[in-house]
């Protein structure tokens, strides 16, 4: 039996993770820790503690960190000191220094650190990785990626808080596609250009639109549209697509294509019926905690993606490409 906890209920994924942990065999959801009463109230899925040390004292082997982004480092420090393995929500941190320290404290303590990149466990994206390995489209030349969504503030206002989230659409959405591209290529991003704006939901303090161009060290280029550009009445939260151009062909992937389109009682929505990448991600993490395998996604992957996301802001300010 692997004993797992959740630190923080700020992130919208906490409830889904709790449901998965409860459902998995040989896993016990020990409890969650959350100091803010307004987030703690109404939580019935498990025991709830008001601080992280109480959760650690309840004996956990591993923890999923779902605090707001600027509180990741403090949580990970506590957990690493206690020898607890960590699966940390993305982006890893709101600054490069914090993200690097998250990686370092886990290294020093000898605990495992995984970044929550569920798209690594998305079947169509895994197939894309295989196609690239098999050179089905020849050598990769360029990617065109979109990770668009509705503004997530309905779920949690801090997603649009410049301090808590470190930014807006860029922090929320650039990291997934950076990680996918770097994973597929086995290459490192070296340069970023971006323009960002605040046309969607001008009432918030952070950027809500952005188009990012990344150059990798093998010469491949890729663009990412990270905008919160889906209207409030869009059927679902958003989506992720990536198109790959190679020397011998092209292939396009919609990571959320396994869905029904449904119109019901005056609303329209899409109903997912396929594979749940979050579940596979957590299973992989638990397997690594048990020593069954090594981590396929690490803190270094999260650090790299965070560096690119933060480089986006530097470029937008400079109006020129910047090195990362």
């Amino acid at each position: 039996m692997t004993r797992v906890g959740i630190v923080g209920l700020a992130h919208v994924h906490a409830a889904a993770y709790a449901a998965i942990l409860t459902d998995l065999d040989d896993v016990e959801l020990v409890g969650v820790s959350e100091p803010r009463p307004e987030l703690r109230n109404g939580w019935t899925s498990s025991d709830v503690f008001d601080d992280i040390d109480a959760l650690i004292r309840a004996r956990v082997d591993a923890v999923i960190v779902c605090t707001q982004t600027n509180e990741h480092l403090a949580a990970v420090r506590h957990l690493a000191d206690a020898g607890v393995d960590v699966l940390c929500e993305k982006p890893l941190a709101t600054t490069v220094d914090d993200a690097r320290e998250i990686v370092e404290v886990c290294d020093r303590a000898g605990v495992k650190l995984m970044t929550a990149f569920p798209m690594r466990f998305s079947p169509p994206l895994i197939e894309g990785a295989q196609w690239i390995d098999e050179r089905r489209a020849g050598s990769v030349l360029a990617f065109m990626g979109t990770n668009n969504g509705r503004i997530p503030t309905d779920h949690a206002a801090w997603f649009a808080d410049p301090v808590a989230a470190g930014g807006g659409a860029v922090m929320d959405h650039v990291v997934h596609l950076v990680d996918i591209m770097a994973w597929w290529l086995g290459a490192e991003p070296i340069e970023v250009y971006a323009d960002i704006n605040k046309v969607f939901h001008p009432e918030v303090l952070v950027e809500t639109g952005g188009v990012v161009t990344i150059t990798f060290d093998d010469g491949v280029i890729g663009t990412i549209d990270c905008s919160w550009s889906r209207p409030d009445n869009y059927p679902v939260w958003g989506g992720l697509t990536i198109e790959t151009l190679g020397t011998e062909g092209v292939f396009a992937i919609d990571a959320f294509a396994e869905r029904l389109e449904m119109w019901s009682r005056g609303t329209s929505t899409w109903v997912d019926w396929g594979h749940d990448p979050n579940r596979s991600m957590i299973e992989h993490f638990i397997g690594a905690v048990r020593g069954d395998h090594s981590l396929a996604v690490t803190g270094v992957d999260g650090l790299r993606a965070t560096e690119v996301a933060l480089g986006t802001y530097r470029s937008a300010i400079a109006g020129q490409p910047v090195e990362v």
């Binding site: 030349l141 360029a142 065109m144 250009y193 971006a194 323009d195 960002i196 704006n197 605040k198 046309v199 639109g209 952005g210 188009v211 161009t213 150059t215 010469g219 491949v220 280029i221 663009t223 151009l245 020397t247």
Partner: peptide, 20 residues
């Protein structure tokens, strides 16, 4: 930026009114 010997181009345009 371009790829494929210059036959594939990805461009970002910044409009005067802030649109991208």
């Amino acid at each position: 930026r371009s790829a494929g010997g210059g036959d594939h181009v990805l461009a970002t345009l910044s409009h005067t009114n802030g649109a991208i």
